[in-house]
Simulated scan of single mutants.
Amino acid sequence: MSGLSTDREFAAVVEMLQHYFDGLYRSDTRILRQVFHPKALYATATDGTLLELDMDRYFPIVDGRPSPASRGEERADRILSIEFAGPVTALAKVQCAIGERAFTDLLSLVYVDGRWQIIAKVFHYDIKPAQ
């Protein structure tokens, strides 16, 4: 976890990422709306076709699914890296799990309106082996 940052900026990104993990684990779009920029992009091509959504299409999906918390799933979120490209731009690579899917997310971050926000989430997922 390196790059061009101060300890304060780094801590602010880590705190924002914790809110991101909490929002996903609870399927809580009130939390997720605080970490995603309203114009953020959500994209994956894991199954061979591009899926891209804006937040107006992504949040109802989150609202409609049972949360990992409600199913008693063990949390598997972790920050793999944070890289700063400058004082208002960063990239975070994180992992988490929802149901049978283990996700690796590449989160492009911007510092606007006095806080760090996700402007793009591009991700890959694998199906976890049955236990």
Rank of each mutant, 00 (worst) to 15 (best):
L91W: 00
M55H: 03
M1H: 14
V62H: 15
S108W: 06
L50H: 08
Y58H: 15
V62D: 07
R75D: 09
I31M: 07
R26T: 08
A120V: 05
H19F: 12
F21P: 00
L51H: 09
I127F: 06
L50Q: 09
P87T: 14
A45M: 09
V122I: 13
S2H: 10
G48N: 15
R57P: 12
Q95E: 15
I118L: 01
A102P: 04
H19N: 11
F21I: 01
L107S: 00
A69D: 03
E15S: 05
A92L: 04
V94L: 05
K121A: 10
Q34H: 04
S70N: 04
F36Q: 03
I31C: 09
A102E: 10
Y25R: 03
Y111C: 01
T49F: 11
D63F: 10
S67K: 02
V14C: 15
K128A: 06
S67C: 01
A43P: 05
S108A: 14
L109S: 06
A43L: 15
L41F: 05
K121Y: 04
R8K: 14
S81Q: 02
P66D: 11
A76T: 10
Y20R: 03
L91F: 01
S70Y: 08
H37T: 03
D22K: 03
E52H: 11
R78A: 09
M55K: 11
K128G: 03
A90R: 02
V112E: 15
L91S: 02
D47E: 15
I31K: 10
E9N: 00
F103K: 07
F10D: 01
D126W: 10
I79T: 04
E52M: 13
I61P: 08
C96K: 02
E74P: 08
T104K: 12
I119C: 04
S67F: 01
D63C: 12
Q18P: 07
G72M: 09
F10W: 06
S67L: 01
A97M: 14
A76Q: 15
T104R: 12
L41R: 12
Y58C: 12
E83F: 03
Y20L: 02
V35S: 05
A120T: 03
F36L: 00
S27G: 04
M55R: 10
P60K: 10
H124D: 10
T89H: 06
T104N: 08
G72C: 09
L109G: 02
Y42P: 06
R71I: 10
A43K: 14
G99S: 08
I118P: 00
